[in-house]
């Protein structure tokens, strides 16, 4: 029994990391109706910038002189995430905006290409960037207690994910700009007609999405203790899967989707004999089946295409 429980914890942790990228995908898709494929790479970019801030610039040590460790961690994470927010804006301007109102294939390809470019830029310009980098330990690592199988760090990751989602919920439902994001994602034309500044909404969505991806990248890297320049592709793909399984465009669905994929991966590798090598295969097969037979996702509504 304890084996099942500890595997469930593993799955929940993995699910959290997938969900965060999934949320990014869904947010962009909801507002813009496009898939921003470089989301995974953007998240890893955040992890690399945080690594750079800590181990090259030495910001953490400097902050620690004046502040308690917890606060300096939060500040560094916010700095890294803001950087990714800005990066996302730049990406929007360079590789997404030119393809508005054009065939869906084009922004998909351009974001895939920019994901590759981002990855390679890290590999080339980060010192020793092609080698895996040890991620600085900013979260306390020890076990919570002897009985619980969960460590401090894992608890923080789960709580941070939940907190982020809660904040996102409040932002989207309680603030004016959040409501306009919702309005745009429901019906762009109508939203523009009632006087919503669409361009502004898009910019804010990308800033926000970049910020969330940044925090996602931080949590992932903390969980794995390591960042690789090419981690973003697989991570982004799993995030995309999470978003689709949860219903593309549905932010909360992405969490369910992420957990579902993580559970399948973990349980296949733990309980199917020789299953470790097939964990990803099982997860992707599930995604394919989902798209074929329940494309609206776990908690999405079925839409009928009007001619």
């Amino acid at each position: 029994m304890s084996l099942v429980l500890s595997q469930a914890i593993n799955a929940i942790m993995l699910g959290c990391t997938y969900s965060l990228v999934g949320i990014g995908f869904s947010l962009f898709f909801g507002v813009m109706d496009i898939v921003v494929f470089c989301a995974g790479d953007v998240a890893i970019f955040a992890a690399f910038s945080i690594t750079a801030l800590v181990s090259i610039v030495g910001l953490y040590a400097a902050l620690n002189l004046a502040l308690p460790p917890f606060l300096s961690t939060v500040l560094i994470v916010i700095a890294g995430a803001s950087l990714t927010g800005v990066l996302m804006l730049a990406l929007y301007r360079l590789v997404i905006k030119p393809f508005e109102n054009k065939s869906a294939l084009m922004p998909l390809l351009s974001t895939i290409a920019s994901g590759v470019a981002l990855r390679e830029l890290i590999g080339i310009f980060y010192p020793q960037g092609r080698n895996p980098q040890t991620f600085p330990q900013l979260l306390p690592g020890g076990a919570l207690s002897d009985f619980a199988m969960i460590s401090w760090r894992n608890l923080i990751i789960i709580v941070a994910t939940l907190l982020l989602v809660a904040l996102l919920y409040l932002f989207v439902n309680k603030t004016k700009i959040g409501l306009s994001i919702q309005a745009v994602s429901q019906n762009r034309e109508a939203a523009i007609m009632v006087g919503i500044n669409w361009q502004q909404v898009v910019l804010i969505t990308f800033l926000l999405g970049g910020f969330i991806l940044g925090i996602g990248g931080f949590l992932v890297a903390s969980y794995y203790d390591v960042v690789r320049f090419d981690m973003g592709s697989m991570y982004g793909l799993k995030g995309f899967c999470a978003a689709v399984v949860g219903g593309l465009g549905n932010v909360y669905g992405a969490i369910v989707g992420g957990l579902l994929i993580a559970f399948i991966e973990v349980f296949v590798s733990a309980f199917v004999p020789g299953g470790t090598a097939y964990a990803s295969v099982a997860a992707f097969l599930m995604v394919v089946l989902f798209i074929l037979f329940k494309p609206e996702g776990v908690i999405g509504e079925k839409t009928i295409e009007k001619v």
């Binding site: 899967c241 990803s280 992707f284």
Partner: peptide, 22 residues
């Protein structure tokens, strides 16, 4: 036959990855 656009792209990506893994 059943999907297109992003969903189709994800399906083909997934199938491609499955092919390599298999």
């Amino acid at each position: 036959l059943k999907t297109r656009g992003y969903y189709l792209s994800l399906v083909t990506i997934a199938l491609q990855v499955i092919f390599t893994l298999m």
